[in-house]
């Protein structure tokens, strides 16, 4: 029996995901455009006062990032579920948790990382003081993987439902609350000149916990959805 080595299967899956992402690049741009539009709407809605915008900037940028990450989550496992690839993945004998991790990693690289890269631009738009920008970027770098990891559990649970998108949001948003509180308070603290390492440290701890536990929960949820 020549089962491929785990690393071969992992890279094959990652390569396939990037190829698929490239073929469907219009779908990838949608969440990013959504992010830009949401952030642009705030000055129009709450008024263009620079001080007001600076005050709400961390929250607005983080909420927009959160919404933009959840948008493509619904499709994370859906096409694999519908065309039978998922059942072949379960049967392949490879650990399902690592298969899930490869999918999550690919999702973060095409949906989370661009948000991190766009964040300096968003900070300028929202008039975020310079002291807050590096902390905003740091919080997004360690925070967006948590969004993908926790979101994947919800995506796996709702994959067998025809219209699981709304239920997915209801499932995962409450779990994002601590992350949102910590991240926005870190950025606000940095703007006010206060120490912010505690908040960042807690986000990092959350990321490590999610990284070690979420793939297993996702794998269990996927198995449940298939039966």
């Amino acid at each position: 029996m020549s089962k491929p080595a785990l690393s071969t299967a992992f890279w094959a899956l990652l390569r396939r995901d990037f190829l698929l992402a490239y073929r469907r690049r219009a779908e990838l741009l949608q969440p990013l455009v959504f992010l830009l539009v949401v952030v642009t709407l705030f000055p129009l809605g709450v008024g263009p006062s620079p001080q007001l915008l600076a005050n709400i900037a961390p929250g607005v940028i983080w909420i927009a990032a959160l919404l933009a990450t959840v948008l493509p989550l619904d499709s994370l496992f859906r096409s694999d579920y519908e065309d039978g690839t998922l059942e072949q993945m379960v049967l392949s004998g490879q650990p399902l948790a690592l298969i899930a991790l490869a999918r999550i990693l690919a999702h973060w690289l095409v949906a989370g990382l661009p948000i991190v890269l766009l964040s300096p631009l968003l900070a300028v738009w929202m008039n975020l003081p310079d002291a807050g920008v590096p902390v905003l970027i740091k919080s997004l770098i360690i925070g967006t993987p948590v969004l993908s990891l926790i979101g994947a559990i919800g995506a796996a649970l709702t994959v067998s439902l025809k219209r699981g998108g709304q239920l997915l949001s209801l499932l995962v948003f409450p779990l994002y609350v601590p992350l949102l509180i910590l991240a926005t308070s870190a950025v606000s603290a940095a703007v006010a000149g206060l120490p912010y390492n505690g908040q960042l440290g807690l986000i990092l701890a959350g990321m490590i916990a999610a990284l070690t536990l979420a793939p297993f929960a996702t794998a269990a949820a996927l198995k449940l959805s298939l039966s």
């Binding site: 190829l19 519908e82 065309d83 039978g84 690839t85 059942e87 049967l91």
Partner: peptide, 16 residues
């Protein structure tokens, strides 16, 4: 050992 299962779903990606 693990059997090979070929079911109704073809496991083919439309974009590849």
């Amino acid at each position: 050992q693990q059997p090979l299962y070929a079911g109704h779903h073809p496991a083919i990606k439309d974009d590849l």
